[in-house]
Design a protein around this nucleic acid. Structure first.
Lengths: 180, 180
DNA sequence: ACCTGAACACCGTTCAAGT
DNA sequence: ACCTGAACACCGTTCAAGT
């Protein structure tokens, strides 16, 4: 079998974190899943922390890509609706956010903060485009983002609850059609 | 010095989790902070898991007490406002929720679910008392609770953001005075 | 260039032995 | 009844040695 690459280790790490949480991230386990010994790990990375750092970076880039794709939607109301739907539908992909947001791993906090700020900015800009004043847009964005994070953590189990949540969020958090 | 009690170990564990996260919970560290050796731990508990279980139970009881106190507020709108304020003000005490809600520790999920259900029920009942229909009360409670959880995770750092958040949540998530 | 295998410190758990 | 101290398996990290 061909040798393992840095990306192989990162992918295995992100998959393990999203699936079983950060605590499950063990070098011997990762090594076994890649059919090498744990000693091999230290040729690619200086430490477990470095693996985590690089995996976090990769995750951050993926989030940027998602937002950039959503930004292609011209109508701000439709864009907000698409963001809310994405938040509810891609719940598996958001396992990473849930697993890392409360972690005390060094360097996780800044990444979480950057992703939060990036998504908040996305919301504020969309609300302003939709006709809200800056302060009102900011307040509503905070509320909407908190609801978004909270919904991820709630892992709404019943499909009906999820549908209710999205419907209600769309209604009460997306402004009425342009008042301009 | 007198011998350690089960409660001493539980208190030390909850404090450690709230302060540095679940990963920091190590028996030797706890033992040192209590001035005993780690071997002593196993006279009180069968395993680390049992310590966690008992600590979770204790935490759950504390949450019930908080809700019961809030229930003494007769006016549902004032009660909802008090809950939202408590969520924002007691952020330190909620470090436990943040630290545990995304954990994959066995037995943590059921406790989180019971606490969530308990708080959701509290919200739904308050909204119904405030004049909303059952389905509308349920949808709004879901949104409000998601915002509540999300706000905890966001750890809104700036005081102004927190104030904005509470003001806006109160305005958009608490129904207008009784329509009956 | 990439991997193995042995070594060491640390944590979870057990248990015989102390008081 | 409560605690100590040694023991063992497992993980993070290092490093000399292999190919």
């Amino acid at each position: 079998m061909v040798n393992r690459t840095i990306q192989d280790w990162e992918d295995a790490a992100l998959a393990a974190i999203a699936k079983d949480g950060l605590a499950s991230l063990a070098i011997p386990r990762l090594a076994r899943s890649l059919n090498v010994t744990k000693g091999s790990f230290y040729w690619h990375f200086a430490s477990l922390q470095e693996l985590i750092d690089k995996s976090l970076k990769r995750w951050e880039e993926r989030d940027q890509t998602t937002l950039d794709e959503l930004r292609r939607i011209a109508d701000p109301r439709a864009r907000l609706a698409a963001l809310f739907e994405e938040a509810m539908e891609q719940r598996e992909a958001h396992g990473l956010y849930v697993a890392l947001s409360s972690s005390t791993v060094p360097h996780a906090a800044p990444v979480i903060r950057r992703i939060s700020n990036s998504r908040l900015k996305f919301l504020i800009e969309s609300y302003i485009e939709a006709g809200l004043k800056r302060t009102e847009a900011r307040s509503r964005a905070l509320l909407a983002y908190a609801a978004y994070i909270g919904a991820l953590h709630l892992r709404l189990s019943k499909k009906k609850d999820t549908d209710d949540f999205v419907a209600h969020a769309l209604k009460s958090l997306i402004p009425a059609r342009g008042r301009s």
